[in-house]
Design a protein around this nucleic acid. Sequence first.
DNA 1: AGCTGTTTAGACACCG
DNA 2: CGGTGTCTAAACAGCT
Length: 797
Amino acid sequence: MSATNGAAASNSPSQSEFCDFLKRKYPDDENDISQNNNQSEENQNSDSNNSWKKQKQVGEENGGNCTMTPDTTSSPMAPYTSTEIPISCAEKFSTNNGSTTTTITSPVSSSYTTSSPTVESTQVTSSSSAASFNIMTNNPAFINDLFAYDANLLVPTTSTDNLLSQGEPSFTAPSAICVNTTQQFHEEGENADNWQATDLLELDHRYNSTLQTEITQLNPTVPLKPHEENLVTLVEQQHHSNQNHGEQSNQRQYIQSAEEISKSGKQLPAMIQHTTADTEPDFEDRNLSWLLNFKFDEFPHLNPDVAGGPNRSQKSSMHCNGGAGGYKVINGTANGRERSKSPKSTNKAGKKFEELVMEVTSEVEGGDMAVGENVVIEDTTTIPQRAPKKPPFTYTELIEYALEDKGELTVSGIYTWISDRFPYYKSNDDRWKNSVRHNLSINPHFRKGHKAPQGAGHLWTISSGDSAENVLAWEHKKQRLDLFFKMESMNRERLVQQHQQQQQQKKQQSSSNSTRHQSHSHDGSSQDACLYDEAAVAAAAIQQEMLQQGHTTTTAKDVSLPHHQHYHAQHQQNSHHRTTLHQANVHQQQHHHHHPPHHSQSLHDLPYNELLSEEELRKTAGQILNGIHREVEVQSVNHHQPIISTYQDVLLDNDYLNPIHKDVAVNESGLHQVNNTTVSATAGNSHTGHGTTTATTPYYVTEIDPIELGIQMSSHPNPLVHCQTHSNNNHQHDHAHQNHHSNNHQLHSHHHHHSHHIHGSGDPNSSLNAEDTDVILFNDEFNLNYFTYNPATDIVA
DNA sequence: AGCTGTTTAGACACCG
DNA sequence: CGGTGTCTAAACAGCT
Ligand SMILES: [Mg+2]
């Protein structure tokens, strides 16, 4: 417990948004699909990811825990192990749907106005009122497992029933979901497996199209099926009630972890106990999927080169992911290429894996190494479980969801949040945790806040822009997450039913005495039952939450959503911003006009508001500059005097491109706004020629030596000026782009469009524009993170 | 020693 | 193909 730290945790709002990135990974196209399938297989088998942990062995015991110590977050933790039930997620929905205020109109514009933050807000529209969910189930084929993901998860069934019943409600508000209609109803079979993938893709597709067109389209279309309706019922009710109250928009449903749920009182108890008892002690421990994530190199004898098989490709590198499925290892064809690689992990993991493999293989016929075959691992025999599939969310998204939901979390809290809800990410696996940390560092919208109360580390928060786009994008993400969980629930339900049927059949058979072998266990459709469902749990959680909400006035923070994203893009990030409201009283406002006020709040929240000592300023400035994309013009105004650096108009209001509001950045950086005149004067001195100085725009000046901030002015001829303009914003901005390779590249080019924004903002610095000029080092976006690293450019460090 | 947080890199998938 | 986005692995430094 820990109290959960985050204080915030509980209420925050978050929502889920959804991105399109799915597309990429899981393309809509049929072709893609096919590919996906392949992949999926792999995945299933190996399951990639996650799994290994570096440390692991020990860990295990703990099970999950592992790491979590720290503060807050942890409390929830223990999750699985103890309970076994991993996740529950409930979703919340964005309430806003219908009312989102923001308009989307010009996407671009929004942000940049320097002065006035407000975007256009207002309005809006749209919304999605109630959405209806469509679809579902009934598709015959599974698309691939990619999406199937958790449906399978694993937990032995038994008690599930209870859960299910309770769980059902998980579906939240219909409103949130928008599924595309297109296919939907094939009612034939029961295979509904597809729906997840399909739905998500559709959602994404829709989102994309909407971006172009209008928001309104987001509204849901298809009506729910009866049974679905049932599921939803609770939610809707709640929803209605809320609406009545006028809250609708804000209400959210949260995703709770199993633990939370249990705490809350709901009980899943039966299940939990049961499960735990039955199967393994530790759920996670038992799941050996991580073992499948190996590198061929490490296990020469397994090297597929020989084997042949379906291989995939050539990626030499490889890890095979194993996937779920039945724990098969897929083959990879790996070439032996990469062999020597990571010593560490390799060794450790390798051994384990190796041993395991040996065992397995031995069992397997012929020992064919073909890795491709099915290797059954462990208990599969008795337990139907399948390894969870990798959720269709990027790490960035997962973190966003977690932070939006809880407001602020420690790193370990984030791990917990994720692992509680997505079985794929085991708490004893260090690999994905490394990725999480990496993403925190690399994405500017993830901000490191105060030090964690307890252990090492800090509380992380998310900052998002308020632009309409962002709002939309966030809405989309939320919907995606919600849809995902719904689908999960449904799948779960379906599986349970199947399982029950099977059991009945078995009984009958046994009684009838027919053949013992019930070989067909794996029929396409039936996957064994996994009963466990996150969804169920989630549902339960939601239900509970709803109930609670009714009474409690929890504090709710609402988070407004974030917004952002780029259009095209797809994929990307988003940002979010959250605002806090007290539900109890006020909440009505829901409108997202967070802007104005919010900004201020955000400032307040930040630790920086107060005056800082010089050192602190320096430190802070460095931190701020580090990792934030901004458009900056750095000029060395004067040499002889104290160094004065100018950051020109760089800091934009926050929006999806610039998650951190300009004011915040300025404040944190210790910058002062200066009149043009002033600056120009100085500037003029220094470098005359270039004219880079813009007449009009205000400058932000700091006395901190740029070098201290990691920015080195070029030593060239005019030492003076170096400007960078960039708009940085890039599409994605957030993402930090890691530059591939040399950072240089990215720095230049692209994204000009954004640049105009800047201009638009009133800052003509046409002169600056000139990307052409020598002076300008960077164009559009560039990540100050890399400032230091670019030797090539003038800026060096 | 373990956890955190920052960076660097290589590999891939996509997209225009 | 180059630019991007994502993922994974790692090296490292700083804290606790
Ligand atoms: Mg960051």
